[in-house]
């Protein structure tokens, strides 16, 4: 074992006040790193004139909000975003949740292989897939098509929607199911009344992550959906490149609002360990 070397600076750590100060510096630095980019963006969204090196805008206005709201593309893109992402989640439920139950509760050959194979497929670099998928979709008439976009966004959520609920079903105590069965419930009733409600939090966590991933997806959507289907993140790419700072900032805030509402709603459940269980922690 390596002897612990006593450095000169150690005395510093022995003084409680110093230690507390160090802790607070660390926290402030982390807070700055996490939040400051977003705060700057909020300032930009309300700035009319903001010249370097002023720390705050010289003049505020809402004119860029007006501009963004009167840009016809916003409504169209929002519509595409909110009609694709939720459908991706629904489709993922249909495809993945029965499988999650099977992975957790049934014995069948190749179980572990299939479970891990999902991850193997998932680690293929996205853009390589999108190029090839686009040529397949072209043959199937799915380019510039609503379902093409849904399918391309689905790629990123399959593993999440299978793995996390599998851990959720794993976490339902078998004794509870057996007790329900002993008191006369049939297997289907046991599933609906006992198993599913107890696994629901993990399904919710997976759904939140799936929604975020689908909502955030831009690269595949651009490749498959162009030119007709532009979701909000796709529009954001062109706005960032072609318009002054406030436009991107206003748009960013608009694009973040639904997600931040989701965050407030989902915070507790996300913090309760279902995500970690899905990825094999514990």
């Amino acid at each position: 074992m390596q002897p612990v070397r006593r450095l000169e600076a150690v005395w510093f750590m022995r003084v409680p006040q110093m230690r507390r100060a160090l802790l607070w510096i660390l926290v402030l630095a982390l807070g700055f790193f996490l939040l400051m980019p977003l705060l700057t963006l909020v300032l930009w969204a309300f700035a009319d004139v903001w010249r370097y090196p002023s720390l705050l805008p010289q003049m505020y206005s809402l004119k860029w909000w007006n501009w963004v709201f009167h840009n016809g593309n916003l409504g169209k893109s929002a519509l595409w975003s909110f009609t694709t992402a939720p459908v991706v989640v629904l489709l993922a439920w249909v495809i993945c949740l029965p499988a999650a139950y099977a992975f957790s509760r049934l014995n069948f050959p190749g179980k572990r292989f299939f479970f891990v194979a999902l991850l193997a497929a998932d680690s293929f670099p996205r853009f390589g897939i999108y190029i090839s998928v686009a040529t397949l979709f072209f043959q199937w008439g799915l380019i510039g098509n609503y379902w093409g976009v849904v399918l391309v966004q689905l790629i990123n959520v399959i593993v999440t929607m299978t793995w996390i609920p599998t851990a959720g079903f794993d976490g339902v105590p078998r004794e509870l199911e057996e007790a329900a069965r002993d008191s006369g419930a049939n297997p289907l009733q046991v599933f609906w009344r006992v198993t599913l409600p107890l696994a629901l939090p993990s399904i919710l966590v997976a759904s939140i992550l799936a929604f975020l991933s689908a909502f955030d997806e831009a690269q595949g959507t651009l490749v498959v959906g162009a030119p007709d289907i532009t979701t909000l993140p796709v529009l954001m790419y062109s706005l960032v490149a072609n318009y002054p700072e406030p436009v991107g900032a206003v748009f960013s805030i608009l694009l973040s609002i639904p997600n931040l509402l989701l965050l407030i709603f989902a915070r507790r459940i996300l913090l309760s360990g279902y995500l970690a269980a899905g990825f094999g922690v514990r």
Partner: peptide, 26 residues
């Protein structure tokens, strides 16, 4: 049980196959 398990697990595996493995192989 094995048959049902395979059928249920086949759904995401098939989706992954069509959307990722097949294009990757191409």
């Amino acid at each position: 049980e094995a048959l049902i398990g395979l059928c249920l697990a086949a759904l995401p595996v098939a989706a992954m196959f069509v959307l990722v493995v097949l294009p990757a192989f191409e």
